[in-house]
Structures are given as C-alpha cells and as structure tokens.
Design a protein around this nucleic acid. Structure first.
Length: 115
RNA sequence: UGAGUAAGCUGGGUGAUCGCGGGUACCAGGCCGAAAGGUGGUGCCUGAGGAAAGUCCGAGCUCCGCAGGGCAGGGUGCUGGGUAACACCCAGUGGGGGCGACCCUAAGGAAAGUGCCACAGAAACAAACCGCCACAUUGGUGGCAAGGGUGGAACGGUGCGGUAAGAGCGCACCAGCGGCCGGGUGACCGGCCGGCUAGGUAAACCCCACCUGGAGCAAGACCGAAUAGGGGAGCGGCAGGGCGGCCCGUCCUGCUCCCGGGUAAGGUCGCACGAGAUGUCAGGGCAACCGGCGUCCCAGAUAGAUGAUCAUCCAAGACAGAACUCGGCUUACAGGUUUACUCACGGC
RNA sequence: GGCCCCAUGGUCAAGCGGUCUAAGACACCGCCCUUUCACGGCGGUAACCCGGGUUCGAAUCCCGGUGGGGUCA
C-alpha cells in the first residue's frame, strides 16, 4: 500500500520507515470508521507523531486537507497526549470532507479510549 | 430584444491572531552525529495551477567508451511557412456539414505487387441466373448486356440517335483518365483537345517521401567512516562477455607499465536566470512568429511546506496541489467578464 | 515522481476483421436419477470497461478516457 507521510517542524515527528514499522508491529491500536491510531512507548521522554493518508482516501487535494487538519489538531492539543510515546495516525476514506471541529471531536474521543 | 458562432481574460476579496517551507541580515557560538554534515532566536522579503492532472508527443539536461554505418523496428503523411523541436501553431488547397457567422477533415500511392471482400448472388475483377435477338424447332448454335433479381458495392450516369437485339457504336452534358496551354513558390485552379473505362479496402501487408540509438533526476556527480579491491595507458587480436534486436565496428576480461581508487545504510549537490516574465515600437510579417529597447527575479520541498480561529462584503466560491525544467496536445471545470461577427423579429 | 502491463457471464478464462446469435470449466436455477444428500445426465439464466473514428461489417484495428496491477531509491 502506498502511504504518504509528513513531518512538521515545531514538534517531534516520525520520519523513518523503520519507526513506522516498529509502531505498527509493536504497538496498540484504537480505531473507528474515520481513523486508526497506533501508539507505542519509545523510551525518549517525548511524543512523536506520524501521519499516513493513503491514495484510497482521495485525490491529492483531499489528502492534503485531511493531513493538515490532523496536524493542526495534534499541534494544538499536544498536552492531551501522554509523553514518551510514538503515535501514527492513519486516515480512512470516511474522514474526507469533515470540518476541523468534526475531525477534532473524532480524534479526541479516540484519544480518551486509548487512555 | 432573442438565438447563435468565434477568440480572449478571470478563477473569491479585505483585515487580525496562532502555526509551517524557502531566502536574507543580525545575534548566539551551543546542541545532534563516527564523519560528511545538519540544527537555534529575532526582523524583513517570499511561498502552487490554468489545467500544477493524464503522461499522449516534442526538446533541454545526465549517464550508457564514441553516439558510428547497414538491416530490422517505430513514427509522421494535402501545400507553404513558424519554431530549439514536434504528431503543435499560422496561412492556404481539396472534400464534407450549416440559411449564415463558422465548424469538421490520419487528406500520399489501389495502372509496383500480394491479400481480403463473410451471407446473398450466375458473377466481387471474374462474368451470364431470369432475360432480349437471329437461325434452327423444342433438350441446339450464335449474338447481346437494355431490363429484372442479390448485395454495402455489379463493369461510367442521364437523354437522344442507332440496331435483328444491343453495346461509348455515335452525339450532347456530367463524372473519371491522359495530354497541352495559362495562373500560382506549391497543394491546386481555369481553358482546350484526345481516346473511351479504370470496383472497394493501405487506422490489411506493402510502396514512396521525411524523421528516428537507448534509458531516464529513483538520471547522474561528489563527501565521509568501515570492509576490501579498483582505475588509466600501451600491446594483442584466439576464446568469452558488454554496447536497445541482428550484422559490421568497437570496448572489457588477458599481458606490461603507471596511478591511487569502486560498492550498500548516511550526507551534499543536481535544484531553478530560463528557447524566462512583462511593457513598449503608428518595427517586419495576412498570421503563427521574429527583431530592437526598457524593466523585473517570480515556490524550490526531500516522509515532502498554504492550515486553524474571528470579523466583514458579494454573484456564496467549480475542477483541483509544484517534485529536474520548458513547448504543445488531451481531459476536468461553478460563476463572472471583454471583443468581433451571423440569423430572426421590431423601431428609427 | 518515472517506467511498464491488464480489462470478456458471479469466478477462471478462449478469441487475433465476417457461420460471434461469443467456446469451455467452476458456480447458480429447474428437471431426471436416488428413500434423501452427493456424484452423474438433460435444459436454462448470465459477459466483450466507457466514448468517438476507420470499414459494407469491430470484442478484435486507430484515438481519447476510466478502473485495477507491477516495477525502480
């Protein structure tokens, strides 16, 4: 499967393919129809984020929009994520077209479930 | 006023706060890394499209030793011009469509050769089923191709003459073919004359003319550590291998001499000043385009930068996101807007 | 980002301008066989990805689009 992964400058991001694979393989999962969140302790004392939006979600404009909203939500709500974990947030096709507020509700409710 | 044709332009705006990529100036001279190298803060500047798309053509650039010859293969196909080049663009020619503005057109060659033309039909390039006529008189011999019938297509078409019946057998016009004359750079057009017939298909093979080496920025170049082995020149031409397929040719492996280097994870460059944008000239040209002069620098990421919130205006925002770069084509697309022209109706 | 393939019933697939009204197999439906099921036999439903063009005629040839898949660091 082809995936698109982005970085951000202001907070820590996952870049390496092996980091993604480690998180997929050794981590825990919370998911619903819109998102899948993988997470795993990283022993670094800080949180890192990775985003994956496959071509199944839509065309380039739609994928960019989804990724940018997710990135903004994570940046503004960093304190709600536990430190010392790697997070990989995978988008599913149902998320296309949702507003920032809708996506924020979806992401934060999933976050509460992972605890 | 309505209907329409053609060619363009535009593709939400403004303000505030937080956040991101790039450049630059100043400050800091710390942190990460084995090294190469990367990274911070503040201010200022800047930050997706007309299609950025599809990857359908054409180029630049890079490597394949040189980018060489022939064959094969591939492409283009009315004419002239534009261009770096093109399958693109402009102007024209022929054909087709529309009352018209205007639009469409893969449009060389079928007397160089080969193949195919199912079914039907006598016959599909080779003729005679029903027929017509003459002589015989019943089953024959000879002549003919008008009419019927089949088919997408039937051996030029219509009319008059002619004949036993008929036929370009003769004549007129039309279509087609050849020749001559005139015009045009040319495709072609106009006129005259001649003989009297040549089916279609080349987006079937093919012939003719012209073009064409292959891959692609994940090309490729460099840096550093480790591990271990290479590169250049000359000689030689037997064997093996490489250079897009084959042949020629040529290079490497071989020997001698010399020199200091290749490969995977990583990093840097390539990577943005260019067939560049824009304005102008009573510039050249019907035009595409070309030329002169002036002004400007206009994304450059590398897991990949444009988002969020608020206010406000309106017609309430379509299709859609750069990834080496250009020139085209094709496809997607809400709305707004400009110019020229055509037809119909009405008024002056 | 570049390059390269493929598309025919529900599935796997043959075809290479004309008897295509499209072969075959599995699957599905009905009938027969069997006490019943399975096997077997007979019959049936069901397809050329879409839009143009060439041709008398296109699943096939040409052009454009759509949807899948592979490969290159």
């Amino acid at each position: 499967m082809r995936q698109k992964k982005q970085s951000m400058g202001c907070f820590n991001i996952l870049k390496k393919r092996r980091d993604f694979r480690k998180t997929y393989a050794g981590g825990k999962v919370v998911a619903d129809g819109h998102l899948v969140i993988y997470y795993k302790a990283n022993n670094l004392g800080i949180s890192r984020f990775g985003f994956s939006v496959s071509k199944k979600v839509g065309c380039a404009v739609k994928r960019n929009k989804v990724r940018r909203i997710l990135k903004e939500i994570c940046r503004k709500n960093q304190e709600k994520f536990l430190n010392g974990r790697d997070y990989v947030i995978v988008s599913r096709p149902g998320i296309v077209g949702k507003s920032y507020q809708k996506v924020s509700e979806i992401l934060l409710s999933n976050l509460r479930r992972l605890g």
